[in-house]
Nucleic acid binder design. Sequence first.
DNA 1: GCAAATTAATGATTTATTCAAG
DNA 2: CTTGAATAAATCATTAATTTGC
Lengths: 124, 124
Amino acid sequence: MKVHQLALGGLKDQQEPPSLTLACKSFISGANHNVQVGTRWNPTEDQITILEALYKGGMHTPNATEIERITIDLSKYGRIEGKNVFYWFQNHKARERQRQKRNLNFVDACLRLNGEATMAKVAK
Amino acid sequence: MKVHQLALGGLKDQQEPPSLTLACKSFISGANHNVQVGTRWNPTEDQITILEALYKGGMHTPNATEIERITIDLSKYGRIEGKNVFYWFQNHKARERQRQKRNLNFVDACLRLNGEATMAKVAK
DNA sequence: GCAAATTAATGATTTATTCAAG
DNA sequence: CTTGAATAAATCATTAATTTGC
C-alpha cells in the first residue's frame, strides 16, 4: 500500500481528482504560494534555483548534515522537508544521467549512420 | 551548436525521430567536442549491455581465456581489444566499490534526520 | 479567453544491484 | 554462501504545461 494512501486511508473519494478550476488554482497560488493544494512538495522557483546551483557547484549527493542545512536554508522560500531535498538530489542526478545517456546514444547513432569514412574524417 | 543541444531540441523527449542527417552533418562539420573516434575505445551500447550482463552474472575478474572469448564475441558490435575488456572489468569493479564507500551511512543519516516512515521505506 | 483533455515533468516508491560482514 | 548497508535504476503517481474545442 502506498504511503499517501495510508495517510488518506479514511477518506472515501481519495481517488477522485480535486477538479479545481484554473481560476481557483491560480487564485490560490497567487494568493499564497504555500497553500497546500495537494500532498506532494512543489518547489518554488527560488528553491529550484538554489538546488540547481548547489548541484552545479558539485554537490551531487549531500550527506545528512548538508541536507539539514539545505532544508533549513530553503525553508525561507517555502514549505520543505529533508526528504524532499533527498529525493530532489536523487532524481536530479538520475535524470541528468538519463539525459547524458540519451545524448551519447544519439551521437553513437549519428556515427553509425555516417559510417567509417565519416568517422575517419572526424578523427582526422 | 553542440550536439546535445541538437539532440534535445530535435528529440524533445526521446519520442519523435529527429532529423538525423542534418544533426549529424552539423555535428561532424561543426563541434566535434569530446568523442574520440579512433584513439580510445568507445564501447557501443550493445557492448556495454553484454559486459554488464556478464558482470551481473558473476564474472567480476575474467581470466585471460575468458577475456579472449569476450573480445571475440564483442567484436561483432564494434572495434574492441582484449585490453579494453580487461580494463572495463577492472574499472567497473573499482567504481562500484568507490560509490559504495563514498556514500557510506548516507541514508542512515537521513533516516535519523527525518525519522519518517517514508524514509524508512527508502532505506529498505 | 476559458476550462476540459492531453502531454510532459518531476516528486515519491519500489526493485535489483553492489561490496564485503559474518 | 548468506546477508546487511546503501543505493541507483526503474517505476508509479501527481502536478504543471500545453493543446484543443468552444
